[in-house]
Design a protein around this nucleic acid. Structure first.
Lengths: 108, 108
DNA sequence: TTGACATGAAACCCAAAGGTTGTATATGAT
DNA sequence: ATCATATACAACCTTTGGGTTTCATGTCAA
């Protein structure tokens, strides 16, 4: 089965503010779970669940190191988001082009 | 209160596949609710709820016209998504730059 | 080997998400 | 006036999401 069969996709993974904050933390540097959860008011278990969801979306990956599990960012799946966005980007660029056209006409 | 107090933000709004499809339909052209819901296997009421959520995120806007309500796309809030993405884009560009560097070194 | 530490995993809770059906209201057509 | 159409709104249902607590397991340190 393909990537579309994954339970959590990128769009869903980044929908939650806590998960976005986790991504930001991991963008700075790789971190073990306890260090990540220290940044949040919720339990370590809750953070662990968020990390599972991010893992399913392949936005992070955890490697076992001794008794810790170190998570690091994998930004690649965000390209899917970028592609999705580019379609609409073209759309709002058109708006800007129309505006530019109007401005230039007025200057003549 | 600011925009952050909105119940549904852009990230949440685009998390659902049905809503993304609705956006795509509205990107083509503006449409009344019944026309939109004709594209889906679920009820018109369900689509109406999705449109409400998209409205809250200001990704669409509905104008009453006779007994219909015509919805059209408002892509502007997607800039927030683009900005969020750009942070990580820079990140994966670095990966590409590193790779390019290695390749060029090997060619010398 | 014994204790502290880091995580995994299960059971449970509550609220929200996504959906349905049924009823009401406004508008257009006859 | 009457009827069909387009939508709004309320009530309800079921699953998922985000969270907690508790207990088990593996690993480091003394």
């Amino acid at each position: 089965m393909g990537a579309s069969a994954r339970k959590h996709d990128v769009f869903q993974a980044i929908a939650d503010p806590t998960r976005r904050e986790v991504l930001r933390l991991l963008a700075e540097k790789e971190r073990p779970i306890s260090e990540i959860s220290a940044h949040f008011p919720i339990s370590r278990t809750a953070i662990s669940k968020h990390l599972h969801i991010l893992s399913e979306a392949e936005l992070v990956k955890g490697k076992k190191a001794g008794r810790e599990r170190i998570y690091h960012l994998q930004p690649e799946p965000l390209t899917e988001l970028k592609q999705w966005l580019s379609y609409y980007e073209q759309f709002w660029n058109n708006k800007l082009l129309k505006l530019k056209y109007i401005v230039e006409e007025e200057n003549e």
